[in-house]
Design a protein around this nucleic acid. Structure first.
Lengths: 240, 240
DNA sequence: CGGTGTGAAGCCTTTCACAGCA
DNA sequence: TGCTGTGAAAGGCTTCACACCG
């Protein structure tokens, strides 16, 4: 018998599900657009350094690595208004995009698992940047607990629910070995964390109300391997 | 003026381009299917440990975190034949999938940039696993050259083209800071590397015949942030 | 009977092309 | 004139549902 495990909770339908809230909720922004907002955001930050007042969809497209039609369609979903004949006001657009992405808030992050990858993430400049503040490092290995990484001390996994409550952890980053990932995810969910980023090379299942995204190095290499072998060009792996 | 840079070379059309080869080339496998083959591969390896002879699409779907219809459609693209009323022969399927993914070959990998992330990648078990062998560590910083990480010594970026030629590097992993990424990519391309995995948080442009995939931590966090703020559930970020 | 293989339908995304406005 | 905003068209992906076969 194959070990059953739980039913896999991947977001199958890419259908922008309308939640049953009382607010009529404006048009939902398509997932594909959401996945590109960070690209625009980064491009806009580069531009705003240069004290430029306005960008065209064409320029923004080039900086973000997409095409202009996509930029216009995407931005139209924000309701962001550009000026015909001119372009988009950079400052205004930065504001719109960062508001939409929730970057005007602070999102406390916990890193779970401090092996090679977890430590690298803990030290990674730009990870903590822009509102994502690492507030806890957690590991199940008693030998690691108490150790200092960067400015934080590694804490035991048993303390997780208290840590999450006390520090308002909003995002959990799983960097454990594969066999430990599901248990950690369960703890995160139980503690009330609703957003998880999984680096462990295994399927993790979470309840429908929890967001789970995954980054898998082995998978990426295998995809490159496929295209190299078939002499096709790989797509860029835009996350949707 | 916005600094021009080169035209972004993202794989815009998801159209499975048919190359003009002399071989009529069977049906192309859809990109979405390719991106899932690694999931099936991993699931199949787990099963084959357990000495199980056969899997149904339902079981495989659960292990891979997708749905059964997708599994059947995907595997049908491989031409892999399951047996009606029974399922797929595990051993046979592992062979088919790994052949298709090019995992029966050896793919020498070079890591470019040995900051926190690069070092973590260099030490990451399972990165080197299954055919992906790290054969070179390269950094532009003279202070790092000569240093040993794991079993390899960091070499200067000037030596890259020789390294690529001598060790048949097939895949380059960029783990440099953003400003250095494009230059390193250019060197890789000039040296003949046709597959690149980019961890630097910036747009990198490569010629059309080169495969480029990207992994961006900041982007992932921002996507989670969006959905958390909007109380929608994020898609899992399956790479397409 | 059970489970694969697959046409067909539906949905989402991308691209096109141009009306319309500053 | 120049560039946005957007209907419409086109393409790809997912899901459905069932014929078909071991």
């Amino acid at each position: 018998m194959i070990q059953p495990g739980r039913r896999a909770g991947t977001a199958h339908g890419a259908v922008p599900r309308r939640e049953e809230s009382d607010i009529p909720e404006a048009r939902l922004i398509p997932e594909a657009t959401v996945a590109r907002l960070p690209l625009y955001y980064r491009a806009l930050l580069e531009i705003s350094d240069q004290a430029i007042g306005t960008v065209s969809s064409e320029q923004l497209a080039e900086l973000a690595g997409v095409n202009a039609a996509k930029v216009r369609k995407d931005l139209s979903h924000l309701g962001s208004y550009g000026t015909r004949g001119v372009g988009y006001d950079v400052e205004h657009l930065v504001g719109e995009v960062s508001r939409e992405l929730g970057l005007t808030r602070d999102w406390p992050v916990a890193i779970l698992g401090l092996g090679n990858l977890g430590r690298a993430l803990a030290n990674y400049r730009g990870f903590g940047a822009r509102g994502f503040r690492i507030v806890a490092l957690v590991d199940a290995d008693p030998a690691k607990v108490g150790e200092t990484v960067g400015e934080l001390t590694i804490e035991p996994v048993e303390a997780l629910s208290r840590i999450v409550a006390d520090r308002r952890v909003a995002i959990g980053v799983i960097a454990t070995p594969a066999p430990a990932a599901q248990a950690v995810a369960d703890r995160l969910v139980a503690a009330g964390v609703a957003s998880i980023l999984n680096f462990a090379p295994t399927v993790v299942v979470v309840p429908p109300e929890v967001s789970l995204r995954k980054v898998d190095l082995a998978t990426e290499l295998q995809i490159l391997s496929f295209y190299q072998q078939h002499r096709r060009r790989a797509p860029d792996g835009a996350r949707v």
